[in-house]
Amino acid sequence: MSTAKSFNRAGKQPGPVSIQQELARLRASRPKPAPERHLTPGGSLEQQVKRGLNTQRETRIQELTIRSRTLSEQTKTGFARARDKGRAKGAFERSR
């Protein structure tokens, strides 16, 4: 690979992750509740950190779910409008 190509590729970020893929990954990473036979040392600080991480994860899941629904609705309405626009144009042409 030439140096010009390697420099061009250096600034590029990896491709975007689709919303559905990120949702699936986040949902799969949710902690599974399981009874434990021992107490975890670390006390309230550890619980506070875990609570914060879980809150961030759940917030992101909600954001992605809402975005996914919104994009789906926008796509459906966009197709309907495009179809209706073609109908209106054809009706106008026929009325002349």
Rank of each mutant, 00 (worst) to 15 (best):
residue 21 Q to D: 13
residue 91 A to V: 02
residue 64 L to P: 06
residue 73 E to W: 00
residue 37 R to V: 01
residue 2 S to D: 14
residue 38 H to D: 04
residue 51 R to E: 07
residue 52 G to K: 11
residue 79 F to M: 09
residue 89 K to L: 14
residue 75 T to A: 12
residue 77 T to L: 11
residue 51 R to V: 02
residue 1 M to H: 12
residue 56 Q to I: 06
residue 32 K to D: 07
residue 55 T to W: 07
residue 28 A to R: 11
residue 31 P to I: 06
residue 85 K to C: 05
residue 6 S to H: 14
residue 30 R to N: 07
residue 42 G to A: 05
residue 46 E to N: 04
residue 90 G to A: 15
residue 54 N to L: 14
residue 41 P to H: 05
residue 39 L to A: 13
residue 60 R to E: 00
residue 86 G to D: 08
residue 45 L to R: 11
residue 29 S to I: 00
residue 64 L to V: 07
residue 23 L to E: 02
residue 75 T to Y: 03
residue 21 Q to S: 13
residue 80 A to P: 01
residue 4 A to K: 11
residue 75 T to S: 06
residue 60 R to T: 00
residue 8 N to W: 12
residue 82 A to T: 06
residue 81 R to L: 14
residue 11 G to L: 02
residue 13 Q to D: 14
residue 69 R to L: 06
residue 60 R to Y: 00
residue 66 I to N: 05
residue 70 T to M: 15
residue 72 S to A: 13
residue 75 T to C: 01
residue 78 G to M: 06
residue 69 R to W: 00
residue 81 R to D: 10
residue 47 Q to D: 10
residue 47 Q to F: 03
residue 11 G to P: 02
residue 92 F to D: 10
residue 14 P to M: 08
residue 32 K to E: 12
residue 60 R to C: 02
residue 9 R to L: 15
residue 21 Q to G: 00
residue 13 Q to W: 11
residue 76 K to S: 13
residue 4 A to D: 11
residue 68 S to N: 08
residue 54 N to F: 09
residue 4 A to M: 07
residue 6 S to R: 15
residue 56 Q to H: 10
residue 90 G to C: 05
residue 40 T to P: 02
residue 22 E to N: 07
residue 60 R to S: 01
residue 36 E to D: 06
residue 57 R to V: 02
residue 74 Q to K: 04
residue 6 S to N: 14
residue 90 G to F: 10
residue 54 N to C: 05
residue 25 R to I: 04
residue 84 D to Y: 07
residue 58 E to F: 08
residue 91 A to D: 12
residue 62 Q to H: 07
residue 56 Q to P: 00
residue 46 E to D: 04
residue 2 S to V: 03
residue 29 S to Q: 09
residue 37 R to M: 00
residue 75 T to V: 06
residue 67 R to D: 04
residue 57 R to N: 03
residue 56 Q to S: 11
residue 57 R to M: 08
residue 95 S to T: 08
residue 1 M to D: 13
residue 13 Q to T: 12
residue 18 S to N: 00
residue 3 T to Y: 09
residue 67 R to C: 05
residue 31 P to E: 10
residue 40 T to H: 04
residue 89 K to P: 00
residue 45 L to S: 08
residue 83 R to A: 15
residue 89 K to F: 09
residue 60 R to A: 02
residue 91 A to R: 11
residue 31 P to V: 09
residue 32 K to W: 03
residue 16 P to A: 12
residue 94 R to K: 15
residue 5 K to N: 13
residue 13 Q to F: 12
residue 25 R to Y: 08
residue 27 R to M: 11
residue 45 L to C: 03
residue 50 K to H: 04
residue 24 A to N: 14
residue 83 R to F: 15
residue 44 S to A: 11
residue 81 R to F: 14
residue 88 A to T: 03
residue 17 V to F: 06
residue 58 E to M: 10
residue 45 L to N: 04
residue 72 S to H: 08
residue 86 G to F: 03
residue 85 K to R: 14
residue 24 A to F: 09
residue 70 T to I: 13
residue 8 N to R: 15
residue 59 T to L: 09
residue 51 R to K: 11
residue 36 E to Q: 01
residue 39 L to Q: 10
residue 13 Q to V: 08
residue 19 I to A: 13
residue 66 I to T: 10
residue 28 A to W: 07
